[in-house]
């Protein structure tokens, strides 16, 4: 790792001030992506602002048909939360598919969403469920939040405090793991709300998570796997690597979407 100055703020306000003062710094939540990146010297932040003491940023609540998960809530907590399992089981299942048990014990929803890794799982849930990302400054709709690979609407000094997910009628997440890294090679989150369906795809897009409007329209007409028969996503704009070329990814999107619809019931 490159050298950095270490800060451990005791409040969100203090953290935000530090982040604003040290624009080449990085917020450290669970660190499960940031620390490996720093170890490989692919990132060299001047300052590390360790959020681990911001205990008010942990917790899950369900109220008025909305699941609100505070930013530093760990994946393990989401995966095992009785409230989340009851309200949006697909979200708990998604959290339980991230990384491995030890990673889930450290990694946080806020860190994952803020990082917007194109192969991360949570962005697909945010987009498909129409989540709202709340920061210390404002509330941002998921549709506006994810702006391409590792790019988000977050400004300097802005810290995610919670993410709110409206409870859908039905939802499911199907993940095809990269055989080596176990990130999503293709992850498809399908959510059905009153009159609307959203299909969000992670892992496959060269510019990160995206929605498949064509699938959504078909599923709004008929929420059944057969509605997607013959439908596909164009391979152009999809990632190609040694594990999967764009054509295979495009194929998997349809397969995973159908399976998600079937599993959503």
């Amino acid at each position: 790792m490159y050298e950095f100055a270490y800060h451990r703020p005791g409040s969100v306000a203090e953290a935000a001030k530090l982040a604003g003062d040290h624009t080449d710094g990085k917020l450290l939540a669970g660190g499960q992506t940031l620390l490996p990146t720093m170890k490989q010297r692919l990132a060299g932040p001047s300052d590390i602002i360790d959020l681990s003491r911001l205990d008010d940023l942990r917790g899950i609540s369900v109220k008025d048909g909305v699941v609100t998960i505070k930013a530093l809530t760990r994946h393990a907590a989401v995966a095992t939360s009785a409230e989340v399992k009851a309200a949006i089981p697909a979200l708990a299942e998604l959290a339980g598919m991230i990384g491995d048990p030890a990673v889930r014990n450290k990694g946080t929803i806020g860190g994952s969403v803020a990082n917007n890794d194109p192969a991360a799982d949570y962005p697909s849930a945010c987009l498909a469920l129409g989540a709202t990302i709340t920061t210390n400054k404002r509330a941002i709709k998921a549709d506006d939040f994810f702006q391409g690979m590792f790019e988000t609407a977050l400004e300097e000094g802005e810290i995610i405090t919670s993410i709110s997910f409206p409870v859908p009628e039905k939802a499911n997440y199907q993940k095809f793991r990269n055989p080596a890294s176990r990130y999503a090679l293709v992850g498809v989150f399908v959510a059905k709300t009153a009159g609307h369906v959203r299909v969000a795809v992670t892992g496959a897009g060269a510019s990160g998570v995206f929605r498949v409007r064509d699938f959504e329209a078909a599923l709004e007409a008929n929420f059944a796997p057969a509605a997607l028969d013959g439908k596909s996503v164009s391979a152009s704009g999809l990632n190609s690597d040694i594990h999967a070329d764009a054509e295979y990814r495009a194929h998997l999107i349809t397969v995973m979407a159908k399976r998600a619809v079937a599993a959503a019931g």
């Binding site: 270490y6 451990r8 450290l28 660190g31 499960q32 620390l35 490996p36 170890k39 590390i48 360790d50 681990s52 393990a76 048990p101 030890a102 990673v103 014990n105 450290k106």
Partner: peptide
């Protein structure tokens, strides 16, 4: 009590 990867955890975080 939680299993974590000590290679991906800053010692200072464990203060």
């Amino acid at each position: 009590g939680d299993a974590v990867k000590s290679c991906t955890t800053l010692a200072l975080t464990c203060d």
